[in-house]
Simulated scan of single mutants.
Amino acid sequence: MSKVKYYYDTETLSYRKIEPRKGRKLRNVFLFLTASMLFGFIGMFILLNTNFLNTPRELAQARELKQYEIQYELLNKKLAQIEEVLHNIEDRDNNLYRLYFEANPIPEEQRKAGFGGINRYKSLEGYNNSEMIISTTKRLEILQKQLVVQSKSLDEITRLAADKEKLLAAIPAIQPILSKDLTRMASGYGWRSDPFTKARKFHYGMDFTAPRGTPIYATGDGVVERADNTAAGYGEHIRINHGYGYVSLYAHLSRYNVRKGQRVKRGDLIGFVGSTGRSEAPHLHYEVFKDDERINPINFYYGSLTAAEFEEMLRNAAQENQSLD
Results as ranks from 00 to 15, higher is better:
213 G>W: 04
256 Y>N: 01
116 G>T: 12
166 K>D: 11
120 R>D: 02
245 G>K: 02
173 A>T: 11
299 N>V: 05
151 S>E: 05
20 P>V: 00
166 K>Y: 01
183 T>G: 01
55 T>M: 15
246 Y>D: 06
25 K>S: 09
61 Q>E: 08
232 A>S: 15
321 N>I: 05
324 L>W: 13
301 Y>V: 04
8 Y>P: 12
305 L>D: 05
91 D>G: 01
86 L>S: 04
178 L>I: 04
3 K>D: 03
135 S>L: 13
324 L>K: 07
280 E>S: 14
125 E>R: 12
150 Q>G: 03
203 H>F: 03
41 F>D: 01
23 G>N: 06
286 Y>N: 06
304 S>L: 13
321 N>L: 01
49 N>V: 06
306 T>H: 07
232 A>H: 14
75 L>N: 09
67 Q>R: 13
3 K>P: 05
293 E>R: 15
149 V>Q: 04
58 E>H: 08
155 D>G: 00
147 L>N: 09
32 F>W: 13
164 K>Y: 11
294 R>A: 04
234 Y>S: 09
222 G>N: 05
283 H>A: 10
262 Q>E: 14
11 E>D: 11
77 K>P: 00
262 Q>A: 12
275 S>W: 14
95 N>P: 00
202 F>Q: 05
315 R>D: 03
71 Q>V: 05
87 H>K: 02
179 S>V: 09
84 E>K: 09
228 D>Q: 10
134 I>H: 07
266 R>I: 10
323 S>I: 00
103 A>E: 10
129 N>A: 02
161 A>L: 11
173 A>C: 10
138 K>N: 12
291 D>E: 14
160 L>A: 05
281 A>E: 12
49 N>F: 14
283 H>D: 06
64 E>S: 15
301 Y>R: 07
208 F>A: 03
65 L>Q: 10
56 P>A: 12
231 A>E: 15
26 L>V: 10
319 Q>G: 04
78 K>A: 09
274 G>L: 11
261 G>K: 13
62 A>F: 05
105 P>W: 06
251 A>G: 11
320 E>S: 06
51 N>Q: 12
96 L>C: 00
108 E>D: 08
304 S>F: 06
182 L>K: 08
213 G>Y: 02
54 N>H: 03
165 E>H: 04
64 E>Q: 15
68 Y>E: 13
279 S>E: 08
277 G>C: 13
76 N>I: 01
276 T>N: 09
10 T>R: 15
314 L>I: 07
249 L>P: 05
73 E>I: 01
123 S>C: 01
201 K>E: 05
244 Y>W: 14
73 E>T: 02
34 T>P: 00
7 Y>I: 01
24 R>A: 08
144 Q>E: 14
299 N>H: 14
310 F>K: 14
1 M>E: 13
172 P>A: 03
212 R>S: 07
82 I>L: 13
318 A>C: 02
309 E>R: 01
250 Y>Q: 11
296 N>T: 12
81 Q>M: 03
98 R>L: 00
